[in-house]
Amino acid sequence: MEIMRIVITGPVGAGKSTFIRTISEIEPVDTDRKATDEVGSWKEKTTVAMDFGRLQFGPNVALHLYGTPGQERFDFMWEILIRKAHAFILLVSSHRPQDFRAARRILAFMRHRAKIPMVIGLSHADNPNAWPPEDIATALGYLSPHNRPPMVQVNALDQGSVAAAMMMLIETYARHQAEQLNWDAVKQ
C-alpha cells in the first residue's frame, strides 16, 4: 500500500477539521479517546485530539490527512505526525491577525523539525477584514516574495477549493522530490 501522509496544521479556528471533513471519503475520526489505524501503529493509545481523513484513489494507493490538535500545545503527537509526514498545509485565517503569532510559532516549530514541502492555505480570504496575502506572508516572517512557500486561498467548506489546495501541495511535493533526486544524482 502506497500512502501519502499530509498534515493539516494551523491555529485554532483556521478550519483544519472542516478542511479534512470536506475532502475525506470516510467520516473523519476524532481521536479524542484513542488513536486510529495509522497513528495507532505509531502510538498505541493517546488522549490527544486529532482529525484523521482518508482518500483512496486506487486499490493500493491512498492519501491520509492528519489534523494537528486544535489547541496550541506542542506535545509528542505533533512529533509523531511530523516525523511521518510527506508534506503539510498551514491554514491561516486571513482576517484574524491575532492568529498570525500562533501561525508563526507553528511554522518555526515545523521548519525546525522537518524539511518537508508545505503550502500556506489562507481561509476567510473573502472577509472584509482579511489581510492581503503578501501582508500575511510578511507577518509570518517571509520577507522576500521569491523565498516563500506557495500560498493559496482556501474555502474549507468547498470541496473544489480544498482539492485545489491539495493539488498545489502535491505539485510542490513533486517538485521538491525531483530536485532532491537531481541533487542526489549530482552528489554521486
Partner: peptide, 13 residues
C-alpha cells in the same frame, strides 16, 4: 533532534 526530510521519514512516492 535534527530536522528530517520527507524522504527520510516516509520514503519517496
Amino acid at each position: 533532534a535534527p530536522p528530517h526530510s520527507a524522504e527520510e521519514s516516509s520514503g519517496s512516492l
